[in-house]
Simulated assay, not measured.
Amino acid sequence: MNLVKKTVASALVAGALTMGAGTAHADPVEPSGIVPAQVVPFRHEVDKQKALENMLNELGVGWANGGAAGTAIGALIGLGVGCVSMFPGSLAGCMIGTPIGAITGAIVGIGNGNPRAQQAIQEYITTP
């Protein structure tokens, strides 16, 4: 495969990963036969659905304030590092480096864009 085909294939993979990121939304569940939860001392009681909505809102704020840019920058850095680091098999390196860079860039971008996003994720995970 020549250099032009490798470059175009790598750019297409990077573009697809960058443009394919989306936001999920969960509709509220209809309450049916709710059993009261056990009260644990020194624990902040939050409904699981409210914790999910809070987490998604905080992630949305972080995405709007820097997550998308962080994902794009991370994908491009991962693309460059992956293509250069695995030079003989550069297409494989590009395909591995791009998603790793995109995920890392998204995490860093959302964390910098909204510092409360990490706390909302931890609250959702620890909510029974």
Score class of each variant (00 low, 15 high):
1 M>F: 05
2 N>S: 11
2 N>G: 15
3 L>I: 05
5 K>Q: 09
7 T>N: 09
9 A>R: 00
9 A>C: 12
10 S>Q: 01
11 A>N: 02
11 A>C: 13
12 L>H: 00
12 L>W: 00
13 V>F: 10
13 V>I: 06
14 A>R: 00
15 G>T: 00
16 A>I: 03
16 A>F: 12
17 L>G: 12
18 T>A: 14
19 M>K: 06
20 G>Y: 02
23 T>S: 15
23 T>A: 14
24 A>H: 08
26 A>D: 06
27 D>V: 06
27 D>G: 12
30 E>G: 14
30 E>H: 07
31 P>S: 09
31 P>H: 04
31 P>V: 05
32 S>M: 11
32 S>R: 08
32 S>L: 13
32 S>D: 08
33 G>H: 10
36 P>V: 01
37 A>D: 11
40 V>L: 13
40 V>I: 13
41 P>C: 04
43 R>D: 06
43 R>A: 13
45 E>M: 10
45 E>H: 10
45 E>P: 12
46 V>L: 12
46 V>F: 00
47 D>S: 14
47 D>Y: 05
49 Q>K: 08
49 Q>P: 04
49 Q>I: 02
51 A>T: 00
52 L>Y: 04
53 E>D: 15
53 E>L: 14
55 M>K: 07
56 L>Y: 01
57 N>G: 13
57 N>K: 12
58 E>V: 02
59 L>T: 01
60 G>Y: 00
60 G>K: 05
61 V>H: 07
61 V>Q: 09
63 W>G: 03
65 N>W: 02
65 N>V: 02
65 N>T: 01
65 N>K: 10
66 G>E: 01
68 A>H: 05
68 A>C: 09
68 A>K: 13
69 A>N: 09
72 A>R: 06
73 I>N: 12
73 I>M: 15
74 G>L: 10
74 G>P: 13
75 A>W: 04
75 A>I: 04
75 A>S: 13
76 L>T: 06
77 I>V: 15
77 I>Q: 08
77 I>P: 09
77 I>W: 07
78 G>T: 06
78 G>Y: 02
81 V>F: 14
82 G>Y: 02
82 G>M: 07
83 C>P: 00
84 V>P: 07
84 V>C: 13
85 S>Y: 05
87 F>G: 04
87 F>R: 12
87 F>I: 03
88 P>D: 03
89 G>F: 03
90 S>H: 04
91 L>K: 01
91 L>H: 00
95 M>W: 01
96 I>W: 02
99 P>N: 01
100 I>T: 06
103 I>T: 07
104 T>F: 14
104 T>K: 08
106 A>C: 11
107 I>E: 10
108 V>Q: 06
108 V>A: 14
109 G>W: 01
110 I>V: 15
110 I>G: 14
111 G>L: 08
111 G>E: 01
113 G>M: 05
113 G>A: 03
114 N>V: 07
114 N>E: 10
116 R>S: 15
116 R>V: 05
116 R>G: 11
117 A>H: 05
118 Q>R: 15
118 Q>A: 15
119 Q>V: 10
119 Q>C: 06
120 A>G: 10
120 A>H: 05
121 I>Y: 12
122 Q>W: 07
123 E>T: 14
124 Y>L: 15
124 Y>W: 10
127 T>P: 10
127 T>Q: 04
128 P>S: 11
